[in-house]
Design a protein around this nucleic acid. Sequence first.
DNA 1: TCTGGGGTCCTAGGACCC
DNA 2: TCTGGGGTCCTAGGACCC
Length: 434
Amino acid sequence: MPGKERYALVDCNQFYVSCERVFRPQLWNKPVGVLSNNDGCLVALSPEMKALGIKRGVPAFKINDLVKKHDIQLFSSNYGLYGDLSARVMQILSEFTPELEIYSIDEAFLRLDSLKISDWQEYGRKMRGMIMKWVGLPVSVGLGPTKTLAKIANRVAKKFPGYQGVFDITDHPKLEAILQWIQVEDIWGVGYRYAQKLNSYGIKTAWDLSKADYKWVQQQMTIVGLRTVKELNGISCLDMELDMVPKKQIISSRSFGHPVSELNELLEAVADYCQVATLKLRQQHSLASSIMVYLTTNRFRDEPQYANYAGFKLATPSAYVPDFIKTASDLLRSIYRPGYKFKKVGVMLSNIIAEGQAPLDFFDRVYIDDERKIVMDCLDKVNKVWGPGTLAYAAAGINKGWQMKRQLLSPSYTSNWWQLLRVNSDRTTKRLND
DNA sequence: TCTGGGGTCCTAGGACCC
DNA sequence: TCTGGGGTCCTAGGACCC
């Protein structure tokens, strides 16, 4: 029966920018932007920056003039800081309902239909108030009978200040007008490609799409698109995903700070990414048996291009760093060609299983039963207490000349003892890390 | 000089088997 | 040497998300 369920989507406004502002009130009301890895392109903008006509995704070097002219404050991505503030927001939300799905670093779905609430508008404002007071981040709350409609409600809440950041679309008298206002490309689940296709059939708005023939939609957009359309009509098809689902594929890759041609440097980077990828693997208590390595030149540059990849399946699944470094190095050597300027290498782990599911093997020892696991546990423990990278494999290099650029990095105020905020008063200067 | 990184799901098609 | 149908597994590619 449509309308029985009630979902909320809570979404932090310009999350990365807001995180940078938490500890620097002087950035309020100013144009602020956050750059992607390698300080490459713009991934988050404050409203003041959007008002200057700048769009998400533009390369940083293309806005140099505007940055100077309008005194725009730019930052490198500081994922340590963002991840930590995100966890605090999620902690607060989890007190509103046990049915919380952390959808991304800055978004969560809440299922609220078992709650007896008479005024949802006020309930949403309470959430906003708590998060602003305790973490200092502005959020918007959208409520609706399906996740897709809650997403749309969230958009309304963000767009029209009159709603004070909270909008409930459930049984709304203006539902049709709202869906007419939402363009198809702004619907959750409809990307650029499908939007083009739908437009060519005269389907421009969420309202148009909600009226489309189900069979036709499935033919054009698979079962996934059909679910979206049903959700627009108030039929809930997307369940809450409450449990942390282990990843089936783990990628670690990064563009270099400058072009790299030497095999030795590439080998270092690949070894480093093996450390990163297997750490994620161990954190979810999994083992992987397939590894793939890829490398590529910079496709934006007018110079000889080369890209390739190679994979290998280990005899038994593992999460032991050297198992992967050794294999990955061989793979890299097999695809490496001298004379090119490489932009990026990457490592991908797949065929991932839970630790306990590792098959027995007559000849090889099993990871969880041998000293490899003991060594990894020790490594992870040290790095957890003393900070990432305290213990590392020498194969990953020491100087790491290839590492990405992060020239505009803000301090990790909440996750690094040496970068805590210092509070100065007129009488004393208190260093929190003394 | 300078253009991110990390994921998921679905489908079609080929190989192979009975 | 004239030839179906169905099942499974795997991979590549295309779509989407943040």
